[in-house]
Design a protein around this nucleic acid. Structure first.
Length: 583
RNA sequence: AGCCCCAUGGUGUAAUGGUAGCACAGCUGGUUUUGAUCCAGUCAGUCCAAGUUCAAAUCUUGGUGGGGCUGCCA
């Protein structure tokens, strides 16, 4: 055994060095470290956001600093209060508590405006009034440099006047913009006199009609970070080319200024990508809008809400975030890893139950040999095979049972360790039974299985040795339910939404890769009666969602659609199945 | 094509000029009243080329491959 060495990712190492050097104040002061998660409230959060949230929150906590939740609400036409609410809920659910009040970029509009005026005064920004097409054409392209706007050198007073009138709502949408005066010949497109403000005459979800101009991302973002004292502005790789602009704006404000504003450090890391999924908000919206899924929280969706409804725990997502690490490499994480994380968590924490998803009737023919056909025996069974603290419960066993249809074969191969004519199996925590007969309907579907039980195997225990000292053995153990006491339930089984590793890669349309069988609803499942109410062995799940392992089947959670008459269970993930793999 | 970024087993990730390690997956075996779990073992890697150096996954140069950038979105 070698010592487990804690390895620190490149961002942690950079922050360590910054602290040592005194980048943010006194050398060695860790508590200044401030991070933020800056979502735009225009949709639901997905698993990729979870990585970012957990990274930012984790760093702030590790250093004893602050983590800020800030809504980047700079585009009134796309943003809504409902998204603010759902995002707050998701961040909270993940366990990423933020420090202080939730912030909004819109709270800083006045300050940003003042700084923009300063830039105009310094000759670093100007009002352009060309049509959008002209501005676009003048930007040039990847090979050719741009051309300067005819308004680039207009007098400062003129820009000042126009900018104020833009603010006052004197112009229509798109009639004028404020641009930074940088370099139309820069090989970095972001530096070709980028827009700072555009005119949007729309009602903002928080500021109402107070503003007619709204700041662009590049101008606004660094200022928001600066105002909040963010030390480390962490974002994804595609913003790498924006960093020079991020720095330029802060420096432009600080130029010729006595009181310098805080200059955060932007660092980029690779976004989370998972096979058989797509993180595109546009794609997800299309799935919802066109009804390919039931909503943003459809358990097949990779939104945080979707994972939650599927039965994933926040802990499993945190484990995943740690597992995938933080790098600049464009990695593709296998969906199997995500599934392993929830298995690992739920294996430890989920109490065990029995439920038969696709039932077939099994009758014990020798149960009532002494005239007591209705006899029901209560069988004790452990709620967790490895953790005694879960305790035990009692489940009823009697003449009329149900087992899983796939656990019986009329003509089973040798390696099939389950039930077949003449074969003996153990019914978990029940008795050993031997199949003596079965019936089929006109379609050839098995309708009922007849067995005898061995009274010497109560609790599923081995029978006593025979005269020669040999103990009879069985290869298989099946789950089952007692018919008269079982609860009828709906079970929703999910498979991956897309069949392609990278949806849409081949044809350009992700819908082409949709899995037509991603949802299977089983209406006639039967589960043991203990599921009717919360058992003493059920953990205090932080989100209140009841989760179980249905033995030999997988992990399931109770869906909010459940009623008192009919519980609905969502299959979170199957158990690992080496038998299925053999097939 | 201009600029920027990236490259270690199948996958993800360490090694910060000095023994290429860990996890997951796979495979083999053991335990097992879940074909689960658990345990043991095992397979498998530095994109290519040149250079610097006693020593290169690590530094340099060139190539190859992948990603990003031409919204009045963020």
């Amino acid at each position: 055994m070698t010592e487990a060495v804690e390895t620190r990712h490149f961002i942690q190492q950079m922050i360590d060095a910054d602290i040592e050097r005194g980048q943010w104040g006194q050398p060695g002061d860790r508590s200044v470290i401030t991070t933020r998660f800056p979502p735009e409230p225009n949709g639901f959060l997905h698993i990729g956001h979870a990585k970012s949230i957990l990274l930012n929150h984790g760093i702030a906590k590790e250093y004893g600093g602050r983590f800020i939740l800030r809504f980047d609400d700079t585009n009134p036409v796309k943003e809504e209060q409902t998204f603010v609410d759902s995002i707050k809920h998701d961040v909270e659910w993940l366990g990423a508590d933020w420090d202080g009040e939730v912030r909004f970029a819109s709270d800083y509009f006045e300050q940003m405006y003042d700084w923009a005026v300063e830039l105009i005064r310094k000759g670093l920004a100007y009002v352009d009034e060309q049509p959008v097409e002209d501005i676009r054409a003048q930007r040039g392209n990847l090979k050719e440099p741009g051309k300067e706007s005819p308004y680039r050198d207009r007098p400062v007073e003129e820009s000042l006047d126009l900018f104020e009138r833009m603010k006052n709502g004197e112009f229509g949408n798109g009639e004028k913009v404020l641009r930074a005066r940088i370099d139309m010949g820069s090989p970095n497109m972001n530096l070709r006199d980028p827009l700072m403000y555009r005119i949007v005459n729309a009602t903002h979800h928080r500021t109402g009609d107070a503003w007619h101009i709204y700041p662009m991302y590049d101008w606004a973002h660094g200022l928001e970070d600066s105002i909040e004292g963010v030390t480390n502005s962490l974002c994804t790789l595609e913003f790498e080319d924006h960093r020079p602009l991020y720095d330029w704006f802060i420096e432009a404000i600080n130029k010729d200024r006595d009181e310098k504003i805080h200059h955060p450090r932007q660092t980029e890391f690779s976004r989370l990508a998972i096979s058989y999924t797509n993180m595109s908000k546009r794609y997800m919206k299309q799935l919802v809008d066109e009804g390919h899924v039931s909503g943003w929280d459809d358990p097949r969706m990779i939104t945080i809400a979707g994972f939650r409804r599927r039965g994933y725990t926040a802990r499993s997502l945190r484990m995943l975030a740690t597992d995938v690490g933080v790098t600049k490499f464009n990695a593709l994480v296998d969906m199997g890893r995500v599934e392993n994380m929830i298995r690992e968590d739920l294996n430890e924490r989920a109490p065990r139950r029995m439920g038969v998803l696709d039932p077939v009737k099994l009758t014990i023919t020798n149960w009532g040999e002494h005239g007591d056909d209705d006899r029901v025996e209560m069988m004790p069974v452990a709620n967790h095979p490895k953790d005694e603290s879960f305790g035990t419960r009692e489940i009823p066993f009697g003449k009329d049972l149900y087992i899983e249809r796939e656990d019986f074969m009329e003509d089973p191969p040798k390696k099939f360790f389950r039930l077949g004519p003449g074969r003996e199996v153990r019914l978990r925590a029940g008795y050993w039974v031997t199949c003596t007969d079965y019936t089929k309907d006109a379609d050839g579907k098995v309708t009922e299985i007849f067995c005898t039980y061995d009274p010497q195997t109560r609790g599923g225990n081995n029978p006593p040795p025979d005269a020669e000292g040999k103990v009879r053995k069985v290869k298989g153990t099946l789950h089952w339910v007692h018919g008269p006491s079982a609860i009828r339930a709906e079970v929703r089984q999910f498979d991956r939404l897309y069949m392609a590793e990278r949806p849409g890669k081949k044809t350009g349309n992700h819908l082409d890769d949709l899995n037509p069988d991603s949802l299977e609803v089983l209406d006639g499942a039967l589960v043991e009666p203990s599921l009717a109410s919360r058992g003493p062995d059920e953990p205090e799940w932080e989100d209140g969602i009841r989760r179980f392992q249905f033995e030999r089947q997988g992990y399931f959670c109770l869906d909010p659609d459940s009623t008192s008459e009919k519980p609905i269970f969502n299959r979170t993930v199957t158990l690992k199945d080496s038998w299925a793999k053999q097939q």
